[in-house]
């Protein structure tokens, strides 16, 4: 038995299913919810919310700024060229490069964090019915114990409109 899940027509019954799984002793991190839109109106839509993305974005900005700083100072100093009476390392124009590199670093770090933390997840439980508006609530890698699975199925079947599947 690798997975058991239910499809629910609306957020309310999905919430009930999540609550049922919790009552059956499943930890939040083992509950899989899949929906075709963010379900922020419901409690289960707020699971697993904490993220370090802001910090990674800031870190990326710092890395970008350092790269920009290195780029302008090293290249200007390593081959000093005199132009228009400006100093070799001119700070006013360099600030522009630093700004753009900072922002580029922050943007790229955000994307990398997003890809790593959201797209490279291990879960595979999915049902195309989700695209039609159904909400999937289930447990992946459920215990092999027959009684435990029956218990889960019962919990998933309880909310109105549920269609439970097991594989």
């Amino acid at each position: 038995m690798s997975a058991v899940y239910g499809l629910y027509p609306d957020g309310r019954s999905a919430q009930e299913a999540v609550n049922g799984l919790r009552a059956a002793g499943i930890a939040d991190r083992d509950i899989v919810v899949v929906s075709s839109q963010p379900m922020e109106d419901y409690e289960f839509g707020h699971m697993d919310k904490s993220t370090g993305m802001w910090w990674f974005a800031c870190l990326g900005g710092v890395v970008g700024m350092s790269a920009g700083y290195g780029l302008v100072t090293v290249t200007e100093a390593s081959w000093p060229m005199r132009v228009g009476g400006l100093p070799t390392v001119a700070w006013w124009p360099n600030l522009i490069i630093l700004f753009e590199m900072t922002m580029l670093g922050a943007i790229l770090a955000t994307i990398v964090t997003f890809v790593v933390s959201a797209l490279l997840s291990r879960g595979r439980l999915y049902d195309p019915a989700v695209a039609d508006g159904a909400i999937l609530v289930g447990v992946e890698n459920a215990a092999d114990d027959w009684a435990a699975v029956a218990n889960l199925t019962r919990a998933l079947r309880a909310p109105p409109g549920a269609r439970v599947k097991a594989l």
């Binding site: 132009v83 228009g84 009476g85």
Partner: peptide, 18 residues
């Protein structure tokens, strides 16, 4: 020019001061 505007704006240092 000592403060040549053409030198500053050249992206490739084709115009520069000796």
């Amino acid at each position: 020019c000592g403060n040549a505007p053409c030198e500053i704006v050249c992206p490739t240092y084709a115009s520069h001061h000796t």
